[in-house]
């Protein structure tokens, strides 16, 4: 099934391009980190992380930041840090 869609002759990536990222370790780590952050984000939503606490009260950071906001800020912050590290130190076209 996989071989049907994946051109195995196109080393090493299933996508011909973005090779500037997929053909070196830093790029692969970067892409994996972003993918995992998306999966983690959705998993956090799935377990009800942005809902009320066990006591039934809404969770507020600093007295006003609701969890949907906190989660998003953390997500964007993670992407920002990952991007700065990769694009400013490892991106082949930098």
């Amino acid at each position: 099934m996989v071989a049907f869609f994946v051109d195995l002759s196109a080393k090493p990536s299933i996508l011909y391009t973005m090779t500037e990222m997929t053909r070196h370790t830093a790029g692969r780590i970067y892409l994996l980190a972003l993918l995992l952050s998306i999966i983690g984000f959705i998993a956090f939503l799935a377990i009800g992380g942005t809902g009320v606490s066990a006591s039934g009260e809404p969770v507020l950071l600093f007295g006003w930041m609701t969890m949907p906001l906190v989660l998003g800020v953390a997500f964007v912050g993670f992407w920002l840090i990952s991007y700065v590290i990769y694009f400013f130190f490892f991106w082949p076209y930098r």
Binding site: L34, I38, F41, L45, T50, T66, P68, L69, L71, G72, F75, V76, W79, Y83
Partner: peptide, 16 residues
């Protein structure tokens, strides 16, 4: 309620 903000977080990732 605040759930609609997920569209924004997704959009930031999409644009970037």
């Amino acid at each position: 309620g605040p759930g609609y903000v997920m569209f924004i977080w997704g959009s930031v990732a999409g644009f970037a």
